[in-house]
Design a protein around this nucleic acid. Structure first.
Lengths: 120, 120
DNA sequence: TCCTATGTTCAATGTTTATTGAACTATTGT
DNA sequence: ACAATAGTTCAATAAACATTGAACATAGGA
């Protein structure tokens, strides 16, 4: 498991590059939807976005750039957005991206909150 | 000269990808600094950022993704940010990126407003 | 008309990136 | 101990990307 960067190590170009990939943007978007609930999702919750190994690749990038944090629990990994760190480093950026993504939810292939929740 | 996209054609992943490159981010940043003045800069004003042909490559990407508009005047090209279009599509995004870049101006190799203005 | 200045386009190069399937690790439950 | 589950890592591949220098196009001034 690659190490998470500290708050100060989070860099703007890396974050923007991470968010520019449609799959990673969808992951971040789903994590943002989840913030009103447990704030966490498991890797398996994103299986609609592609093959497992490809998702693991994107998860690693999202961790390495500081966008999300991973917590290991048994055989599962629980992930959440590093909202506080991102807000401290780049105020308003994450919300602007997520709101913009929500506006284009149909154009991007973003899953709505309901679709995520009914996986149970 | 590649065509500019219409406002509705501007896509979030493309915009974020454009902004994730340090050279393009520096170009956008300098254009933003200029918005209190003429709002425009010529290609040559960015010669500190690299070779001409490489800059032309980045200019094209910035045009094609809808971040900036080019106006031809004689042998020069004048460029400005498409702030209104971007604000309409992705409210708050451009400002959040520019403010974040300003915070990290030393970490990124961004030129300050004074350095740009004294080119006259 | 010729020279210069301003940019773009092209071809070539090396790097990074996204994607896939197979192999692997580790944890849980029986 | 065995099998199933959840993810990661690896090797390979194809596509996209950034960078460079040379060639090209075009407008303006002597």
């Amino acid at each position: 498991m690659p190490p998470h960067p500290t708050r100060e190590q989070i860099g703007l170009p890396m974050v923007l590059d991470c968010l520019s990939d449609p799959i990673r943007l969808a992951i971040v978007y789903q994590l943002a939807q989840q913030e009103r609930g447990s704030s966490e999702l498991r890797c398996g919750d994103f299986s609609g976005l592609g093959a497992k190994s490809n998702l693991a690749y994107h998860f690693a990038k999202l961790r390495e750039c500081g966008l999300m944090q991973t917590r290991v629990a048994g055989t599962s990994r629980f992930m959440r957005l590093r909202r506080e760190d991102l807000e401290a480093r780049f105020p308003g950026l994450l919300d602007a991206v997520i709101n913009s993504a929500a506006r284009d939810a149909d154009r991007l292939q973003l899953v709505s909150e309901c679709d995520v929740v009914d996986a149970d």
